[in-house]
Design a protein around this nucleic acid. Sequence first.
DNA 1: CCCTGATTCGC
DNA 2: GCGAATCAGG
Length: 197
Amino acid sequence: MSWTDERVELLKKMWGEGQSASQIAKELGGVTRNAVIGKVHRLGLSNRAGATPAAETKPKVEAKPKPEPKPKAKPAAPKPVEAAAPAPEPKPEPTPAPVSTMPARKQIIPAGQPLPPQPSTNEISPEALAKVNEVEKKAKKLTLMELTERTCKWPVGDPATDDFWFCGLPVQQGKPYCEAHVGVAFQPMSARRDRRR
DNA sequence: CCCTGATTCGC
DNA sequence: GCGAATCAGG
């Protein structure tokens, strides 16, 4: 594969959007993330402008045994990091049912802000729920930044509280959640359709 | 171990 | 110009 205009365009676009090199490489196909990074540098658009997505962009311009001084004078671009949607990619999800299954054992007073509508836990198979509660015990409890493409992104707890984290267990192939959470997130389109219409 | 980007350097 | 190998780090 070569860097055709289109491919470069996509590269620029995605890089601008904060997509990681590996994601871009995956998208483009036929190239590795190294190729992408190499190209990015050659194109001179190393420094990402925009926002710090879920990936990483750290000022780790540290000392490296490099005999070549680099005239790297670039205007510092202050950017308000928006703490918004963690998902840079809109992924179609059948029945996203991120339910914070909070055992009533903790009466935390939420910050009092409107939480996203949370589908009731009914309509979900008891087995699945049991499984979830089971799993949440050994969840890795990752923070937003620690999520990757293969860590379960199931939110647990109240975001307004310290008692909030993401499952973090290995996701099911292609899904954003681990097996257990996929079970409650993706309903078979009708856990029990209105038999008879 | 998973991942990230950065650099080097032979091609 | 290209990108694998390597490096540095989370």
